[in-house]
Computed example of a mutant assay.
Amino acid sequence: MLRAVRSTKVTYMPVSPPLVVALAEIGLVAEIRSQLSSIAGCGGAPRSGRRFPEEGYGLTETGGGATRMLDLDESRRYGSLIPATGEALPPGQQGELWLRGPTIMKGYVGDDEATAATLDSEGWLKTGDLCYFDSEGCLYIVDRLKELIKYKAYQVPPAELEHLLQSNPEIADAAVIPYPDEEAGQIPMAFVVRKPGSNVTEAQIMDFIARQVAPYKKIRRVGFVNAIPKSPAGKILRRELINHALSAASSKL
């Protein structure tokens, strides 16, 4: 790939997060950046760090990319995206992102019920993603609505906790899932991959998060694994982790 970038003078290259991680591990991200006459984009799943300058956001239902960063100045806003079409939400207020435009799908073939649930009568696509705009019009994707953890009367976005966990110098990777709890309904549970040589404990991880979030967002269980299961595009396979957590709990009964 690097040879092709050099020989053909590539001006733009979209990549998936697993490739970004692989390039970073062998020290080629900076070289890729220097070879591109434009910039490289990363999409498919949230980045685990600021390794590539541009992120994009889109769905299959939007016919590809719906919005992306436009220059290096915008790319410095980690986790943000410039808004595409649609009516902007008030700054700071979270809600479901709706999109409308010429690339939006007409519907799901042979599934009128799913189409009606996803598209409204005016053609707005309900993305299922929780987001908010800041005062400068940048769009921040918080998490998938269906993945929010329901802790008592609160909703906890796993992606927010994962970002904090990945900022810990002793953690190589992390994922957060809902774990059933009789009193709270669900509690946030973290699966953590330690960095080589690290002996970070469950208590240390829970304290690290507790010092940075509201009480209802605290991590209340931690499991250690060798790797976080992900799709080829880099999306966390939470269902596998949930099944693992529940099966481990059952074996202890």
Rank of each mutant, 00 (worst) to 15 (best):
A233C: 15
S75E: 01
S250Y: 14
E182F: 06
I149V: 13
I242N: 09
E240I: 11
G64W: 07
A245E: 09
V10Y: 06
E202S: 12
L19I: 10
N226M: 14
G92F: 08
E74L: 01
R51S: 14
T8R: 15
L89G: 06
V222K: 04
A203P: 03
H163K: 15
D129H: 02
D73K: 13
K9W: 13
K150H: 15
S247D: 15
N226P: 11
M105A: 09
E74N: 03
E183D: 08
R68H: 13
D207W: 05
N226Y: 14
T103W: 09
R50V: 11
Y140H: 15
K195E: 02
A203S: 10
E113A: 14
E162F: 04
E96T: 07
E74I: 02
A117L: 10
G128C: 04
A24Y: 08
G49N: 08
P18I: 04
V225R: 10
P188I: 02
S247H: 14
G86T: 03
T62F: 04
I141L: 14
G185A: 03
I205S: 00
V29R: 01
V193D: 00
A117N: 09
K235W: 05
D173I: 03
I149W: 08
D73V: 14
P91W: 08
R47F: 04
D207E: 11
R77V: 07
L246I: 15
S198G: 02
Y154G: 04
D181A: 00
T62A: 05
V109S: 13
G185Q: 00
T118R: 09
R33V: 13
P215F: 09
Q94E: 12
S37P: 06
T127R: 02
L145H: 11
S75H: 00
C138I: 10
P18K: 01
A4S: 12
Q186H: 06
P169G: 01
S75K: 01
N199A: 12
Q155K: 15
A159H: 11
P18E: 02
M1P: 13
I205F: 00
K235F: 05
A114L: 10
F133N: 06
Y57W: 12
R221F: 07
H163L: 11
R6M: 14
D111N: 12
D111S: 07
G128W: 01
D181T: 00
I205N: 03
R220A: 06
F224P: 09
V222E: 05
P18W: 01
A117G: 06
G64H: 08
A84R: 12
G79I: 03
M189S: 01
Q186V: 00
G43I: 07
L81S: 06
T103V: 09
P91E: 07
L99V: 12
A159Q: 13
K195R: 08
I187K: 03
C42E: 04
E160K: 12
H244N: 14
V192Q: 01
E55G: 15
P232W: 12
L139Q: 05
E96P: 05
